[in-house]
């Protein structure tokens, strides 16, 4: 039994021939197992989509009711069997509903992690360590310069700035699925109890999080608010809105951005950010390496991001390691462009 007899890497995602399904395929297929709702992993147009209920709901909210031929919801820990292949979903700690997918055939266990993080997140189930023989890991932040261990400290930095500049508005760029809601929940966790404003593009997903029982407190659309009313407030918006015409409605806005990329100063400066917040929904270098070690795997496949460093690190520890050339992952960040807000620029 070789790993390829369980899962085969292809340019459009990993494929289980024995079970007749793909995981997070980047082109339409008959049967797709989806790890989470970000658009680079969850695409519309598959015949059957198997995913957690939350991921299915998020896909429906983003793509409409006809995003797939059929759907099948699966619970964390539940086992599905297709011929001699068993499949189970386990929390990945990335965003609401995100899962790692474990595929087992004749005793060989392969885990496709999707995107994951091993840090606390009040908006989703905590990452679960799954033992395996082959671990397919992401590498978005696969360089030892990326460390994001103090998200609370970053939220405190934001709150300190709000206290220091009460006449200005604070605009926080955050990806619309997951990061935005995590920032809201963390603000609540640090005792911030005033209304949090949001850009219209975040409304649907944010309301969905609230429906699923994630406590976010008082969330208000910024649309319609007067400029003077926005002084001293925090508004969360898609990253692309921060330097957009849209931001002109705010009084002397402080441009913040909650992202793991903010760890590197040049990235923050390029975007014209004056308050970078290092808050990431991906594992950092320490998270990636500790996770790989802890799975007990003997082989690592690295899917997207900074593959070279992680492959080098794995090989130096005697693990078999290879980069997978899957086209199209990691684009959620760059393509989180906003649709024009209904009712005004």
């Amino acid at each position: 039994m070789r790993p390829e007899d369980v899962l085969v890497p292809t340019p459009s995602g990993v494929c289980c021939k024995a079970g007749g399904f793909h995981i997070d395929p980047t082109r339409p297929v008959d049967r797709a197992l989806i790890t989470h709702g970000h658009s680079d992993h969850a695409r519309a147009g598959h015949g059957l989509v198997v995913a957690t209920q939350e991921t299915l709901d998020i896909m429906r909210l983003r793509y409409g009711d006809n995003f797939a031929g059929r759907t099948q919801a699966v619970r964390y820990g539940e086992t599905l069997t297709i011929d001699d292949v068993t499949v189970s979903f386990h929390p990945a700690g990335h965003v609401l509903g995100s899962a790692q997918i474990k595929v087992e055939r004749k005793g060989l266990r392969v885990v496709a992690s999707g995107d994951y993080k091993d840090r606390p997140d009040p908006t989703c189930a905590p990452f679960e360590l799954v033992s395996c023989d082959v671990f397919i890991t992401e590498a978005t932040f696969g360089l030892p310069v990326f460390r994001h261990h103090d998200a609370e400290g970053e939220v405190d930095k934001l709150l300190h700035s709000v206290a220091l500049f009460p006449e200005r508005a604070h605009l926080v760029g955050a990806y619309s699925l997951g990061k935005a809601q995590r920032v809201m929940a963390m603000l609540r966790g640090r005792g911030y109890d005033r209304p949090i404003h949001i850009h219209g593009a975040l409304e649907t997903i944010t309301r969905y999080y609230q429906e699923r029982g994630v406590a976010l407190g008082d969330i208000e659309l910024v649309r319609g608010a007067k400029k003077s009313e926005l002084a001293g407030t925090i508004t969360i918006a898609p990253p692309s809105a921060i330097g957009d015409l849209w931001s002109r409605r705010f009084p002397d806005p402080v441009a913040a951005f909650a992202s793991g990329w903010m760890r590197v100063r040049a990235r923050a400066r390029q975007r014209g950010i004056s308050l970078p917040l290092v808050i990431s929904d991906h594992a950092d270098w320490d998270g990636l390496t500790t996770t790989i070690a802890a799975t007990g795997c003997s082989e690592v496949w690295v899917t997207h991001g900074q593959e070279d460093a992680l492959v080098h690190w794995s090989r130096a520890r005697g693990l078999k390691a290879q980069p997978l050339d899957i086209v199209g992952y990691g684009d959620e960040n760059e393509h989180d462009e906003i649709a024009p807000e209904p009712g005004g620029a």
Partner: peptide, 14 residues
């Protein structure tokens, strides 16, 4: 929950 400790390993593994 969800921290390194909950997952059963600590910094020394790294």
């Amino acid at each position: 929950e969800g921290g390194r400790e909950a997952a059963g390993w600590g910094p020394e593994v790294s």
